[in-house]
Design a protein around this nucleic acid. Structure first.
Length: 887
RNA sequence: GCGCUGUUAGCUCAGUUGGUUAGAGUAUCACCUUGACAUGGUGGGGGUCGCAGAUUCGAUUUCUGCACAGCGCACCA
């Protein structure tokens, strides 16, 4: 046992101990998990933050939640593993490094691939550890010995293994298709990386003349510049306006190309003019129609967003400049019919916000259908559960309509696609190991695919690649599937769904049992925190100013799972105040440990009412906290501890224990109070530890305890032995009486601390006896002295303030302070309230339907309520009568 | 267009199978520096639970519709 009775600083100052305890935990390997056969595992893999990132509020919340779960399960005795690591974040990291190059006036092409990658690795070494150390300052109990990186050797091996297996199965294929292209990042993107925003645009109506007459067809388009690539005009086959014209040939204005007018079901006759220009090379729908009708693909926009050769004199112009000039020309030649305002969705690059261009290019894709099916089933049959459940639908909805995943990126930073091409025979080979000789023709002229994989390809393997897969490791055997995945709703598709698919396909099982989804941390106005808005709050700043415990507590309380939260400094302060309250309550105990004897255990007779009450309240709290943690209601669990510590332990028990603790004469009562306070505080600290690891450790080490660290102290269970309704009921009556007396005294302005008599009348003799034994409680907490007790049948005191609470009639003979007018008004108001309630309960009880159909217990409750109100009312009415006589 | 979420005190939010006079934090008002804590204590004021229906003995809670706010998905040129 550590030294006891040592005091701590007067106010809570987390700077004095947070670093110290983290170091202590880490030095003692308390975060580390070894595989232990037969021990129940509990594991979480961290959502790997980007290497170049730094901790933001979202990370802080995400990791606080994970740490709470991990610490709680660890205390429960599970073999817990929290796997940490970070993500290479291909496009994001590359963009960052290119930005530093630009500052030097260079581009990645100036350096060349190899040199550029050296730069990125150097960057990774420099910044990669920053966020990990920030996670430490938050208190995250990750197993740092196992830290991983998505591009480390093991992960890279897993990536190649998965790629080759999918390739061999035909689930990865290469195709020339229309894909989302970011002209700014210069790479293809998956559908998920495109964000659609509705924009105010225009609908240009243009007439295309027939080759052999002066008739024309009017088309409508939002992107006139693509007309250089038009190879047809489509109408709906049933459209009476155009039916007779199908099959004829049109002349593309400006360009002069002959293009067919054809019919296709895709066309919506109700939109625009019912005739649509078809540009197979630059629109996904037109691409499909082009395939159906065997149209030529004419590429007119280049990868960098400028117009290509096909645009004639506009070649070389940016596509928007071209649009401007082209529209003018169309107008001049009389081809432009009209322009109307039109709102439409435009795709933007999620990284750089540039407008996405659908371009035809050769990319690698993963066939998703067969992978998605088992992933849907795993959720439908309950092998994976989303918390809150509503996210299930979002997940399955996406998977049910999934399209093939474009996994190749025209970047350099990432896992290079493990496919080699033979320069001589053209053979493409996917391989786990680098290839130097073509396996088909033996040629040594081979080269690897230039592209890298989408970052999420490797993140999708995270739960098993970090545990040694493809080898059959003991870690995989013990910790896979993991138990809980904690993440924000914003990456359900990007990450969660892909992990499930990959986990089922390669890990042999679901990657996790529960997906615990949380919301975003927003600013005080409800806006997303962002760099560009400059409204982000740096969690490191909050930790510096208020401590990690405060930040954690604030982040997990005051909202419900899956919902967004607003950040307010007031809420941070509120959490800090709670820490300070706990700090001082603990300090109080440390100051009152004189003569503490760890071997002293009170007998039943030693416990007084307040002891039995607080122990019973504690037992309920312990059970409630555990129950809420099991339901992932972490905020509710934290709130219960807060309530218990502040409103019960501090407000009532500590105040009532003071008499015994200060009394040096009577050792046994003092030791009993020490025992109870010690027991309750020490156990409550354990309940709070997952939420506020630092302050609980600091206090715990200063009070009587057993063991090395609170983080491995057993989680409280089987505390029902303390439940004591026979103590709670009278204690509650006493508390209500005290509140009523305080209330009356405050209203008449009685001087605090100045004792005054209280006369109490009881209908229940048992209750009267308990009050008699604990008159001291009323003296200490309500300044009631002397306390006079009598049966309800006794004559009522005259000239006194009156209230009825908890089955007790209360009279305060504060002669000098009573203002008859005010007192009458006060009582009248209370009486009116009661009348209203009596009327309500009476109406209920007179309702035959209620009496007949409501559960007996509810009816009984209602009767008791009515009776209570009536008794209360009678006492007040009597009192009012008396006051009326006085006036 | 489809879907999801929210609408409860001035502000931010709880309210767990329908049933105490709907709660907390914060703000606000009054009083109090008493030997854990003024980052505190005590007491007070403040809400027709978005609107309209339905089910029910009974609805903040279940259902339907509507309004407003936010978000997600979506190939309508």
């Amino acid at each position: 046992m550590a030294e006891t009775g040592k005091t701590i600083s007067k106010t809570y100052d987390p700077k004095l101990f947070e670093k110290k305890w983290y170091q202590f935990w880490e030095d003692n390997k308390l975060f580390h998990a070894e595989v232990e056969e037969g021990k129940q595992p509990y594991s979480i893999v961290i959502p790997p933050p980007n290497v170049t990132g730094q901790l933001h509020m979202g990370h802080a919340m995400d990791n606080a939640l994970q740490d709470i779960l991990i610490r709680w399960r660890r205390m429960q005795g599970y073999n817990t593993l929290w796997m940490p690591g970070c993500d290479h974040a291909g496009i994001a990291t590359q963009a960052k490094v290119e930005q530093t190059l630009r500052a030097e006036g260079k581009s990645r092409y100036d350096l060349g691939r190899e040199k550029f990658l050296e730069r990125v690795w150097a960057w990774k070494e420099q910044y990669g550890s920053r966020i990990m150390s920030q996670l430490r300052s938050l208190g995250s109990s990750c197993d740092w010995d196992r830290e991983r990186f998505t591009m480390d050797e093991g992960c890279s091996r897993a990536v190649r293994e998965v790629f080759v297996r999918l390739y061999d199965e035909g689930l990865i294929y290469q195709g020339t298709r229309i894909t989302n292209w970011c002209p700014n990042c210069n790479t293809a993107l998956s559908d998920l990386e495109v964000e659609h925003e509705t924009e105010q645009g225009h609908l240009w109506h243009i007439r295309y003349k027939f080759e052999d007459s002066d008739e024309y067809v009017e088309i409508a388009t939002t992107r006139p510049e693509t007309m250089f690539g038009d190879t047809g005009v489509a109408v709906h086959p049933d459209d009476e306006r155009y039916k007779h014209l199908v099959g004829r040939t049109l002349i593309l204005p400006v360009v002069g190309r002959r293009i067919p007018l054809f019919a296709d079901e895709y066309v919506d006759p109700a939109f625009g003019t019912g005739a649509v220009k078809v540009t197979p090379a630059h629109d996904p729908n037109d691409f499909d129609m082009g395939m159906r009708h065997d149209l030529e693909q004419v590429i007119v926009i280049k990868n960098d967003g400028t117009m290509g050769e096909g645009a004639g004199k506009y070649a070389g112009l940016d596509r928007y400049e071209c649009r401007k000039q082209l529209v003018k020309e169309l107008e001049e030649i009389g081809a432009l019919v009209s322009v109307e305002a039109h709102e439409h969705a435009v795709g933007h690059c999620s990284r750089c916000n540039a407008t996405i261009e659908p371009l035809v290019s050769k990319q690698w894709f993963v066939k998703m259908e067969s992978l998605a099916k088992p992933a849907i089933e795993a959720v439908n049959d309950g092998r994976i559960r989303f918390v809150p459940e509503r996210f299930t639908k979002i997940y399955t909805g996406w998977l049910e309509n999934i399209r093939d995943w474009c996994i190749s990126r025209q970047l350099w930073w990432g896992h290079r696609i493990p496919v080699w091409y033979c320069d001589d025979c053209g053979e493409a080979t996917a391989s786990r190991d680098d290839i130097t000789v073509c396996p088909k023709c033996g040629s040594a002229h081979v080269h690897q695919d230039e592209d890298v994989l989408d970052t999420w390809f490797s993140s999708g393997l995270w739960p098993f690649e970090t545990m040694g897969w493809p080898d059959k490791t003991p870690e995989l055997a013990q910790f896979y599937p993991t138990n809980t995945l904690v993440t924000g709703y914003d990456i359900i598709f990007f990450w969660v769904a892909r992990m499930v698919m990959m986990g089922l396909k390669f890990g042999g099982d679901v990657p996790f049992r529960h997906v615990f989804i949380h919301g975003l941390v927003r600013d005080s106005q409800g806006r997303k925190m962002s760099k560009s808005l400059g409204n982000g709050i740096d969690p490191v700043e909050v930790i510096d100013k208020y401590g990690a415990d405060t930040l954690r507590f604030m982040l997990v309380t005051g909202n419900t799972p899956g919902n967004d939260m607003r950040f307010y400094w007031e809420r941070v302060e509120s959490a800090r105040n709670f820490a300070n309250k706990l700090w001082n309550a603990s300090r109080f105990m440390m100051m009152n440990l004189a003569g503490f004897d760890a071997s002293f255990v009170p007998g039943d007779k030693d416990f007084e009412l307040s002891d039995r009450w607080i122990l019973s309240r504690y037992a309920k709290t312990a059970a409630g906290v555990t129950e809420n943690l099991e339901k992932f209601e972490l905020g509710e669990a934290a709130r219960m501890i807060y309530e218990f510590i502040w409103s019960e332990l501090c407000d009532w028990y500590i105040e009532l224990a003071k008499a015994r603790l200060y009394d040096k004469e009577n050792e046994r009562p003092r030791r009993t109070a020490q025992y109870v306070l010690g027991y309750v505080l020490e156990h409550t600290l354990r309940l709070l530890h997952p939420f506020m690891p630092f302050i609980t450790e600091e206090i715990w080490q200063h009070i009587p305890h057993e063991g090395q660290s609170i983080m491995v102290a057993p989680w409280p269970k089987d505390e029902e032995k303390w439940l004591d309704e026979a103590a709670e009921a009278p204690m509650t009556a006493i508390m209500e009486t005290i509140k009523a007396i305080r209330n009356m005294r405050a209203e008449v302005g009685a001087a605090p601390g100045k004792k005054s008599e209280a006369i109490l009348h009881f209908a229940d003799a048992g209750l009267q006896e308990v009050f008699g034994a604990h008159a001291e409680y009323l003296r200490v907490l309500a300044d009631a002295d002397p306390v006079t007790l009598a049966a309800a049948t006794a004559a009522k005191p005259e000239n006194a303030l009156t209230a009825v609470a908890g089955g007790v009639e209360i009279y305060l003979p504060l002669k000098d302070l009573i203002d008859i007018g005010k007192e009458t008004a006060r009582l009248q108001k209370e009486l009116d309230n009661l009348d209203r309630e009596i009327k309500r309960t009476a109406a209920k009880l007179e309702n035959e339907g209620f009496v007949a159909k409501a559960p007996a217990a509810v009816v009984e409750k209602e009767r008791a309520k009515k009776q209570e109100y009536e008794e209360k009312r009678a006492a007040l009415a009597q009192r009012l009568e008396y006051l009326a006589k006085m006036a």
